[in-house]
Simulated scan of single mutants.
Amino acid sequence: MEMKQIYVLAALLLSFVARISSLSITVNDVECVYEYVFYEGDAISGNFVVVDHDIFWGSDHPGIDFTVSSPGGNVVHNIKGTSGDKFELKAPRSGMYKFCFHNPFSTPETVSFYIHVGHIPNEHDVAKDEHLDPINVKIAELREALESVTAEQKYLRARDNRHRHTNESTRKRVIGYTVGEYILLAAVSSLQVLYIRRLFSKSVSYNRV
């Protein structure tokens, strides 16, 4: 009886395993990330944020495109022209899924990418027990709810990092422009002084003649 309880507990723990990936990608043209989904109907969710270090996006910047392709090659999710977004979908089938970023601009962009594949077990995944199965499903649902909160925190943290980089870049640019203006002002003032001195020296020489 004790061995059966250990087996059931191990099966429950294995059924609760969720795969989480968090990484940073430099997108020059097209960059893809692959993730294997073991069960049809699994929840695939995540988010991405373009971390803009030094270059500001103008109003004409096309943004980053994001696509999710199923194992059959069909596009199951598509986001056009954005600097960051969240996504969520149900896997239509098991297999290898492809997550691709397309940067139509010539400047490389760094993308903070987070993905989570969640699985809520059913009666085929665990030992059949009328008491354990409802508990198993509830725990899996609670785990997915907590994971959703974690994903939101990661998304907000990535956006905060991007804003911090932008603010730091803005501060450096303002300081650079200010120093440049002072240097230019000093140079112009020096040229004016030299020009006025030269005029006065010429005026004095004319009076002597």
Rank of each mutant, 00 (worst) to 15 (best):
Val111Leu: 15
Ile120Asp: 00
Ile120Val: 15
Thr110Lys: 14
Asn122Met: 02
Phe87Glu: 02
Glu109Tyr: 10
Pro104Lys: 13
His119Gly: 07
Asp85Ser: 15
Phe105Ser: 14
His102Asp: 05
Phe105Ile: 08
Glu141Ala: 15
Ile135Arg: 06
Arg143Pro: 00
Cys100Ser: 15
Asp129Cys: 06
Tyr155His: 15
Leu156Gln: 12
Phe113Tyr: 14
Gly95Asn: 03
Gln153Ser: 11
His124Tyr: 13
Ile120Lys: 10
Ala151Pro: 02
Tyr97Leu: 12
Ser112Cys: 05
His102Ala: 15
Tyr155Trp: 12
Asp133Asn: 04
Leu89Asn: 07
His131Val: 01
Ala145Gly: 02
Pro121Arg: 13
Leu132Arg: 05
Glu147Cys: 08
Thr107Phe: 11
Ile139Tyr: 05
His124Glu: 07
Arg143Asp: 06
His102Tyr: 15
Lys86Glu: 04
Leu146Gln: 02
Ile135Gly: 07
Arg93Cys: 06
His116Leu: 13
Glu88Val: 08
Gln153Glu: 12
His131Ala: 07
Ile120Glu: 02
Arg157Ser: 08
Arg157Ile: 01
Arg93Leu: 04
Leu156Met: 11
Ser94Pro: 01
Asn103Glu: 08
Ile135Gln: 06
Lys86Ser: 09
His119Val: 00
Val117Asp: 09
Asn103Ile: 13
Ser83Tyr: 00
Val117Gly: 04
Phe113His: 07
Phe105Tyr: 12
Asn103His: 11
Leu89Val: 08
Lys80Trp: 05
Thr107Trp: 08
Glu123Arg: 14
Lys98Trp: 09
Lys90Arg: 14
Thr110Arg: 14
Phe99Pro: 01
Ser83His: 07
Tyr97Phe: 15
Leu156Trp: 00
Val126Glu: 02
Gly81Gln: 11
Ile139Ser: 07
Ile120Thr: 08
Glu130Ile: 01
Tyr97Gln: 10
Tyr97Ser: 09
Pro92Lys: 07
Gly118Glu: 07
Arg159Ile: 00
Phe99Asp: 04
Pro92Ser: 12
Ile79Tyr: 00
Leu146Asn: 05
Asn103Trp: 11
Pro92His: 06
Asp85Gln: 13
Met96Gly: 00
Ala158Cys: 04
Glu109Lys: 15
Leu146Asp: 00
Glu152Asp: 13
Lys98Pro: 04
Asp160His: 10
Arg157His: 08
